[in-house]
Design a protein around this nucleic acid. Structure first.
Length: 264
DNA sequence: ATGACAACCCCGGGTTGA
């Protein structure tokens, strides 16, 4: 089974791109971030026509996440628990039945957090990460195959940026940010891409500006964290970076994992 | 130091992103 995360940077602006990619990549489950639309305006019919079920957690203008799946959803949960006042659409969880038992998949869009001295933005990022850690700890106790996939807005290590020194004052690379990501991993997750490669110049995002793509000035901020039960079935990871060279691309590319399990 | 680029809001220009 192929499970992919992709920050699409506006699903309505990118629908032709999305359809073309779905036909080419043939994923079973897709976690989208930054759909930038309310649920009613998600282009669901085009996606459903390719055989996908669609569940969204959208909002007007910004943020918004979705899960597309060839498997029927057994359960859907919207919003990260822990702050009833948080109205930003950054989290959706789907549960599926496989031949090896339940599979839980989360599509998350972790707050950017810049600028770091803003009284709201960086604290919001860190509190969101603390909430995610609490939620993940409880979910791990279920001992199910669980995948936390999304745009984490975290550069885990210097090797994950072409120019790490350029990110020293940035929320994506702050010590507190990296520590929070490490704490999450240390609950017992396997970070898919880095678990199979220590190669440099492996990125998932290239800014639109200043020729970042052409110069390979990228960062690796889109990640899939696998619970032990998911990691045991994990066979491959890949970054579909050719998509960044398409017409009218997102600034992020799809990141995929393969798991040795099938729809029930 | 700023802007570069792109999408959203909805129609001129602000907001957000990373």
């Amino acid at each position: 089974m192929k499970i992919v995360t992709w920050n699409i940077n506006g699903v309505r602006a990118r629908i032709e791109n999305l359809i073309h990619w779905l036909r080419e990549s043939q994923p079973d489950i897709v976690c989208l971030q930054e759909i930038k639309t309310v649920d009613d305006q998600f282009p669901r019919f085009e996606v459903e026509a390719l055989g996908y079920h669609v569940e969204t957690h959208g909002q007007k203008g910004f943020n918004g996440v979705a899960i597309l799946s060839k498997l029927r959803f057994d359960e859907v949960n919207r919003g990260l628990p822990g702050d009833a006042a948080d109205e930003q659409a950054r989290f959706i969880e789907g549960v599926f039945s496989t031949d090896k038992g339940a599979l839980r998949v989360v599509s998350l869009y972790l707050p950017n957090g810049n600028p770091i001295h803003d009284p709201v933005k960086f604290p919001y990022k860190l509190s969101w990460m603390a909430r995610l850690e609490r939620w993940a700890k409880a979910r791990l106790a279920l001992e199910e195959a669980l995948i936390l996939a999304g745009d984490y807005n975290v550069i885990p290590d210097p090797i994950d940026a072409r120019y790490p020194e350029a990110w020293l004052g940035d929320a994506l690379f702050q010590p507190e940010t990296r520590q929070a990501f490490r704490r999450l991993e240390n609950l017992g997750f396997t970070e898919a891409v880095r678990s199979v490669s220590d190669a440099p110049d492996v990125y998932t995002f290239w800014d639109y500006q200043a020729g970042a793509w052409q110069k390979n000035n990228g960062i690796r901020i889109d990640h899939l964290l696998l619970s032990p039960e998911a990691a045991n079935r994990f066979t491959a990871a890949s970054i579909e970076k050719h998509v960044r060279a398409w017409e009218k691309p997102s600034d992020h590319v799809p990141v995929a994992v393969e798991l040795a399990l099938e729809a029930a």
